[in-house]
Amino acid sequence: MLEARGLSVSFGAQPVLRDIDLTVAEHEFVCVVGPSGCGKTTLLRALAGLTPISSGSALFKGRPVIAPQTELAVVFQDYARALLPWRTVAGNVALALEARNIPASDHAARIAPLLAKLGLSGDGDKFPSQLSGGMQQRLQIARCLAQEPEVLLMDEPFGSLDAITRQQLQDEVARLAKEEKRTVLFITHDLEEAIYLGDRVIALARVKGNLAGRIAEIVDIALPRPRQQLATREDPRFLQYRHRLFRHLE
């Protein structure tokens, strides 16, 4: 579905990603972990067509991604910057419908179920500034779903939320990904979050010396679904995965 082949990115003379090879299969939930500055955001932006690739390629369904396309939706960590403060909640979701040229008369009927799915029913007429951080991030996710993308690219989407909201949203995103049959590439620096959510976890690390990020290890996560905050995290295999991947974060 989504692929990187020998993908490298440099900013000027500074290499940031070196020779990344990865494949995300259809309906797969893949997490990328790595320490700060190892190039996680850069990898996601390159796959989304936002950041130019220096060599190698990003492929969606076998075709090179050279510019953003509606099949690939991006959920940014800083939700406040990605929302339109002058539009209501419903209006923000409508932006994605406008992009798909859906007639305005159909908007209400399409927006309502999406807001319901993300627990925002009844907030349609509010402005983003009137929502809590968790609700704003839900709104950004609702807008991405309204785009009806095949792939969701999420960049530390819960990084700035409190622990309780984060757990709620983890479970919601896991459920939505399965229900809606979306393919997800999920970036986080939280190893436990990556293991909890992922079918696979890719550990990214910086090469000593030249500082460019590359893939250190890929681990398949064989934990049963649906996962549960307490039971899954206490599963001995969960702890084994944690031990195995932890060294890449140092």
Binding site: A48, L50, A67, P68, Q69, T70, L72, A73, V74, F76, D78, R81, A82, L84, L95, A96, A99, Q147
Partner: peptide, 10 residues
């Protein structure tokens, strides 16, 4: 970021 949101929506 807002411009990027527009680009991502093509």
């Amino acid at each position: 970021r807002l411009i990027e949101v527009g680009r991502l929506l093509a």
